[in-house]
Amino acid sequence: MAKFLIRNTIRTLRFHNGEMTQQALADQVGVTRQTIHAIEAAKYSPSLELAFRIAAVFEVPLEAVFQYEPETS
């Protein structure tokens, strides 16, 4: 079975939203700044609820924030 990765565009979305800080996003979605950092670095996959909350902050659909793609070596 092919290996898949969850990529995200949070860094870009933050940049396009007035250079929102990780802390500001964390406060809006109700997590710690460290969790946002881990998600951005693709080291932690958020729960579905948190993923929806992040998408809601940027007012974009979920798939604009997270992409489930095959891993390229």
Partner: peptide
């Protein structure tokens, strides 16, 4: 105020 101490990752 408003800062989260413990979230789902913790």
């Amino acid at each position: 105020a408003g800062r989260i101490d413990k979230d789902e990752r913790d």
